[in-house]
Design a protein around this nucleic acid. Structure first.
Lengths: 158, 158
DNA sequence: CTATCTCGGACAGAACTTATCCACGTTAGG
DNA sequence: CCTAACGTGGATAAGTTCTGTCCGAGATAG
């Protein structure tokens, strides 16, 4: 089981955007993180389609958050980039084979699927408890309270 | 994010094995579930390598559980087949770009990675709470208490 | 001893992820 | 008006993982 690598980029980009006052171009976000410009553009498009960021076209355009960073959860970003399909997909093998369960018995998901779904629910709940704003604070603390001010300075000097 | 389809097969196979008194050949497990013989064999190999099942070679051979079904958790099966690598892999992008954090500040995982790790921990805890024996009971209840006896009969008549 | 049955690893093909590039519509400023 | 900057979507390709198949090595029963 593996989550798309773009998730990491997306979350970090949201943290950066939470500190910006103007739209930030994709090329600038890529430069800041030292990652591929062209591929990051794809991930940002996914964030845009999910409604987490707003894209301003044309000159002086770029990306900005559509709402307060405190109301954007890590789960929102993960689902925007990695998709919201569950990791476990029940193929209903209980309805196959010589002792197949009749369809009328299969009104609710099979026991295996229920266990998996519950686990993924716990995973999502955990991710939903942390917002982009929370992450910004955490990152700042880890850096000795220098990261965010340095970031804001770098954004302004652009 | 997507988990291997073999996980579903592996869990169902463990439930079947929990009701068997003798080794069950891979071909028979595949027949019971109506799935590919050859590919299921590969998944069973992974269960074998993980020590969840024991393979008996030669005539009248097959697979059997190495320990009580109540002490084999769903998490065991998932990790055996899907691997135990975390879904989220931090590439330390905080150490890249113009405002890279110096390595001496990165003694512990970055804030993003910590959030992801905690969520996966919750997911694993949830899967660890359910054993193969629990699943067998659940499946039996869903079928109106007929599935396990039918299964044992099918295994015996082989 | 031998025929048969089993697992195990080696081997292709499909599908997805990652990554890149270009043409197009849009916007601000000269 | 015209140029430069910017996001969007499509087409493309390499790399990796997942899915699926095959045959040989080894063990067991008779």
């Amino acid at each position: 089981m593996k989550m798309s690598a773009g998730v990491e980029w997306g979350v970090h980009c949201c943290v950066v955007l939470s500190q910006a006052q103007e739209p930030v171009p994709a090329a600038r976000l890529a430069e800041f993180h030292g990652i591929s410009r062209t591929y990051l553009a794809k991930n940002l498009q996914q964030l845009s389609r999910a409604g987490l960021v707003r894209a301003t076209e044309g000159r002086d355009g770029g990306y900005e958050l559509t709402r307060a960073a405190s109301s954007i959860t890590v789960l929102d970003v993960v689902q925007a980039i990695d998709g919201d399909q569950p990791a476990f997909r029940c193929t209903e093998i209980r309805q196959r084979g010589p002792l197949a369960s009749p369809p009328e018995e299969c009104t609710r998901p099979c026991g295996v699927a229920r266990v998996m779904a519950k686990a993924e629910q716990a995973w999502r709940s955990s991710l939903r408890e942390v917002s982009v704003a929370d992450l910004a604070v955490t990152v700042d603390k880890d850096s000795g309270r220098t990261a965010l001010t340095a970031l804001r300075g770098w954004l302004a000097e652009g």
